[in-house]
């Protein structure tokens, strides 16, 4: 069945007609051209389609778009301010925590959720939280360093009103 829904994406309301059978991934990527949201496994296992739903990480490939109304959806595009990179992105750049970068948006958003939930995570907590984000170029050691750097950058940053 088709219906008109309004989704709040990166603090903007988007009204569109979707089929009940469409996943949030299909809507974000194919309709709204938010290219940071990527499909790889399609079964919740890889994290390349990670988005934040009310600040919590989820696999957009497993969610029906019509069930995401009334929630705050954040994709990587909503993380920086359009000009400057977010401290987590900066940390990924300076630690060279990417090669092909296919996995990077999913990792950055998962790190955002992790640091919001556990501001000072141990290595084990980071590994546990990120174990569902796969990186085939296997920059895991660099990613681990990037998380620590991001944590430092965020704790040093002056608190900005959202």
């Amino acid at each position: 069945m088709k219906r008109e829904i309004t989704l709040n994406i990166n603090d903007r309301d988007e009204t569109l007609v979707v089929d009940d059978a469409e996943t949030l991934l299909e809507v974000l990527r194919d309709r709204l051209k938010l290219w940071s949201v990527r499909e790889s496994c399609g079964v919740g296992a890889c994290g390349s389609c990670t988005v934040l739903l009310d600040g919590r990480p989820v696999s957009a490939c497993l969610l029906l778009a019509v069930r995401s109304t009334g929630r705050d959806i954040t994709t990587l595009e909503g993380l920086g301010d359009g000009q400057l990179l977010h401290p987590i992105q900066e940390a990924f750049v300076s630690e060279r925590a990417l090669q092909c970068a296919y996995c990077t948006p999913g990792f950055v958003l998962s790190v955002k959720a992790l640091l919001d939930e556990i501001p000072n995570p141990s290595d084990d907590e980071i590994r546990e939280y990120l174990s569902g984000n796969l990186c085939r170029c296997a920059g895991y050691a660099d990613i681990l360093r990037a998380v620590h750097l991001a944590r430092e950058k965020i704790s040093r940053a002056p608190v900005k009103p959202e």
């Binding site: 174990s131 984000n133 990186c135 296997a138 050691a141």
Partner: peptide, 8 residues
């Protein structure tokens, strides 16, 4: 299964 950050 491929290696995860926890397998590293």
């Amino acid at each position: 299964q491929v290696a995860t950050i926890k397998d590293m």
